[in-house]
């Protein structure tokens, strides 16, 4: 579903991402793992069409994002690292607005809002929302789009434990619906529990791309996943 070929992103002389290639298959949950500044966000932003890559090619469902981004973006919905909504809009206004962006009718948008259960806050301004409710709304926007691909950038960062649980449920649910999910994280536990395959990024380079099982299997003897990861990160 997502093909990343030789992706490079350069800021001046600094390489945020250098020559990365990977493929995310249909229906799998794919995790980008790495410490802060390893290039996870840059990679995701390039996939979503927010960043313009220095070189390389990204295909979403076979469509090149750089040549036909509008078409390519129809197949994915994206949740940024920190979701922010304009403070003086209501939840309903926001969800209907994003509905309009994808030609989704008001009724469908309203249903998505009901499913998210805001308990009477649906028509309140965002300024009155708690962090958890904003996350909920973000997830509702992403879910409403009903695209085959979901892309989440560090979704659990700055969430309280309830939020983390809600997120985990969300990903599991979407996986069961057959969606392709790509998310980034620096939290091993999250990756371990949710992902089918993992790509480990360090300093802008892809150093490992394996299924969770394979990784676990090859290092079963002496190391936990955590130890493995730390050793990999230190090596570089």
């Amino acid at each position: 579903m997502i093909e990343v070929k030789n992706l490079t992103k350069q800021y001046g002389k600094f390489f945020a991402v250098k020559n990365i290639s990977f493929t995310v298959n249909e229906g799998e949950v794919f995790a980008l793992l790495g410490p802060n500044g390893s290039g996870k966000t840059t990679t995701i932003k390039s996939i979503v069409g927010l960043n313009i890559p220095t070189s390389g090619k990204i295909l979403i469902n076979g469509v090149d994002i750089s040549s036909d981004s509008t078409e390519a973006k129809k197949y994915l919905s994206y949740l940024p690292q920190r979701v922010v909504f304009p403070e003086n809009l209501t939840a309903r206004e926001i969800i209907r607005f994003y509905g309009k962006m994808r030609n989704i009718s008001k009724d469908v948008a309203d249903r998505a809002l009901e499913e998210a259960t805001f308990n009477g806050f649906s028509d309140k301004h965002i300024s009155k929302f708690s962090g958890g409710m904003i996350q909920k709304l973000g997830l509702a926007v992403v879910a409403m789009a009903n695209t085959p691909i979901l892309i989440l950038d560090e979704p659990s960062v700055s969430l309280d434990p309830h939020g983390v649980i809600r997120l985990r449920e969300f990903i599991k649910e979407k996986k069961s619906e057959g969606k392709t999910i790509l998310f980034s994280s620096h939290m091993l536990s999250e990756v371990e529990q949710l992902a089918d395959r993992v790509a480990i990024l360090v300093n802008g380079k892809l150093i490992m791309l394996e299924s969770i099982e394979n990784i676990k299997k090859s290092f079963e003897t002496n190391k936990t996943f955590e130890e493995l990861y730390l050793s990999l990160v230190e090596e570089i």
Binding site: L50, K73, L76, S77, P80, V84, M101
Partner: peptide, 16 residues
């Protein structure tokens, strides 16, 4: 130059 979060969400929509 409004908040990055809302900009990113908007720009990731299938619109030019």
């Amino acid at each position: 130059t409004s908040d990055k979060g809302s900009m990113e969400l908007l720009f990731s929509q299938p619109i030019s």
